[in-house]
């Protein structure tokens, strides 16, 4: 599905990613954890193609394609989805309008027929009911005035409608109440299939109680310094990051690299 090799990226001349190696197989769920400012969102944004970041070295293969060669919209059309840590407010454009435009752009790219207004509304209604999503928000300006949690839920609604092959959730669980957290976890579970993969960027074990990751990675200082199974998340929760830093400083090798 995704293979990242020695990825270096910088923004405004400052190097943030300093050699990321990560392989995500089909059907797998990976969790990426790490302290604030370690480069998790940078990794997510670089994968989605934010033009502000310069990739200075390394390569990324996604479903056999050179991901870094693709424009952001083409990555989306090829099934990559990023749930933003900070979804952007778009005044004057409703979530429904925007999502229909995005979905149809993707369908067109794949040679599928575009959905008309009725078909789209039907699809939207199904997903929205499934996620218990407030209908009035569909017609409001996208993310404008949405609460923190509402923004995250809106990202998940988009994911549910777009049905990506690779979903990257950047701290979608942060700021969610217990019920919303379960809804988000359910939405991820719904998508789980042998040919779909998920990367969950998170600070907390709690979402991983619902979605058991196949692998957990620790990102510190722009590098993945340690990888392990789901129990690594428990250890991090209990002990923080210092022990990982210490081990790395002492020359300890990452446990599992897959």
């Amino acid at each position: 599905m995704l293979e990242i090799r020695n990825l270096h990226a910088s923004i405004d001349g400052k190097e943030i990613l300093k050699g990321i190696d990560l392989t995500v197989g089909e059907g797998e769920v990976h969790a990426v954890m790490g302290p604030n400012g370690s480069g998790k969102s940078t990794l997510a944004q670089v994968l989605a193609g934010h033009p502000a970041y310069a990739v200075t070295a390394g390569d990324v293969t996604y479903q056999g394609m050179n991901l870094l060669d693709l424009a952001p919209e083409d990555r989306a059309r090829e099934g990559l989805f990023l749930a933003f840590q900070y979804p952007v407010e778009i005044p004057g454009v409703s979530l429904a309008y925007f999502l229909k435009a995005g979905l149809n752009a993707q369908r067109k790219h794949r040679g599928q027929e575009e959905l008309d207004a009725m078909e789209f509304l039907e699809l939207l209604r199904t997903k929205q009911t499934l996620l218990d999503f407030d209908q009035t928000m569909l017609q409001r300006s996208l993310n404008e005035g949405f609460s923190g949690g509402e923004k995250k839920r809106a990202e998940i609604l988009q994911m549910a409608v777009l049905e990506p092959a690779l979903a990257i959730l950047d701290e979608t669980d942060s700021g969610l109440d217990i019920d919303s957290l379960r809804t988000v976890a359910d939405a991820v579970e719904q998508l789980r299939a042998p040919d779909r993969s998920t990367i969950i960027v998170t600070h907390y074990q709690r979402i991983l109680n619902y979605i058991t990751p196949d692998y957990v990675h620790v990102l510190i200082g722009g590098r993945i310094v340690r990888s392990g199974g789901s129990d690594l998340a428990h250890q991090l929760e209990a002990r923080g990051y210092d022990w990982v830093r210490d081990e790395v400083a002492a020359g300890g090798r990452p446990e599992v690299t897959r």
Partner: peptide, 18 residues
């Protein structure tokens, strides 16, 4: 706004549509 444009493009809209 660049971030807004990127957000729209990340859902599949091309640059002009965005």
């Amino acid at each position: 706004n660049d971030d807004a444009l990127f957000y729209l493009r990340s859902r599949g809209l091309d640059a002009e549509e965005a």
